[in-house]
């Protein structure tokens, strides 16, 4: 008879402890995640610091920088051009159909130029370049890591940060603003084409409306964004490639991580920079 309450207490107790361990375990898991995250941030920050330092310390590798400028700048032109062209075109169309409801068709040119320069050209170009360049950088450097080519560089007295990483970061940071500037022009031109040829705007008045509303800050903020995005894409491509795990799977994971992380950071920094410029 006595044993009944005792065993009850016992089971309760056991339940309690198992509940307690569960709570503790989940707290521990959260702790581990936070620690892991902090460690990751620390590692990336150290990597970025080192990469930036090597961008400014000789020896430099001009041939490598030039090669990356051509790769990142010149060969991304078609992608960025197509993206901004169609974005400008569709923007004119959408704004027109939307704004006629409020008899505000005349704002089409203004909406196109401001959206393109401030937001769409930098963000879309950034995302396209993240897919094109970020992936290529990560895959190339990861393959070099896996096949010991990075180790070989070091044994030949060539610092991989100077030879591989600095040229890519320099080219990425300098070329994306240039690409976006060209993208701005192409995007506005796309809006103009649609406005004049299919929405019935006068060519002269469309251009005047564009010029009237455009302020230098619109373009500058877009170019600043582009510089930051170019830096993000190239540095994260390098980071994930450089720290790639061994084997083909490691290379694949490095590529995916580079593209995903740089795309997300582009969107976050887009918000932050907009906030800084326009509020």
């Amino acid at each position: 008879m006595n044993s009944a309450p005792e065993s009850l207490a016992y089971t309760l107790d056991e339940e309690n402890t198992s509940f307690l361990t569960k709570v503790l375990n989940s707290i521990q898991a959260v702790g581990h995640t936070i620690l892991y995250f902090l460690e990751l941030v620390g590692r990336i920050s150290r990597f970025i610091g080192k990469a930036i330092a090597h961008c400014f310390m000789p020896p430099f590798f001009p041939a490598q920088i030039l090669r990356q400028i051509i790769d990142i700048g010149y060969y991304s032109l078609p992608v960025v051009g197509m993206t901004t062209l169609f974005t400008g075109m569709v923007l004119a169309l959408q704004t027109y159909t939307g704004f006629t409801r409020f008899n505000a068709e005349s704002a089409v040119a203004a909406v196109v130029v401001i959206s393109i320069t401030r937001e769409l050209a930098p963000v879309l170009a950034g995302l396209m370049v993240a897919g094109r360049i970020g992936a290529a950088i990560a895959a190339e450097i990861a393959t070099m890591r896996v096949t010991e080519q990075i180790d070989a560089l070091t044994t030949l007295s060539v610092n991989p940060f100077k030879y591989l990483i600095a040229p890519r970061v320099i080219a990425g940071t300098l070329m994306l603003p240039l690409l976006v500037l060209i993208g701005d022009i192409i995007g506005v031109f796309g809006g103009y084409m649609v406005g004049v040829h299919s929405l019935g705007f006068g060519a002269g008045s469309y251009i005047t409306q564009t010029w009237d509303v455009l302020e230098s800050m619109d373009v500058i903020s877009g170019l600043v964004k582009a510089g930051v995005f170019g830096f993000i894409v190239s540095i994260l491509g390098c980071y994930h490639g450089y720290h790639s795990a061994r084997g083909a799977q490691g290379v694949g994971a490095a590529t995916t991580n580079a593209v995903v992380s740089s795309s997300i950071l582009i969107l976050i920094f887009n918000y932050i920079i907009t906030q800084v410029f326009f509020s």
Partner: peptide
């Protein structure tokens, strides 16, 4: 290097 590690 064991795997040669040439720059491809």
């Amino acid at each position: 290097f064991q795997g040669a590690a040439l720059f491809d």
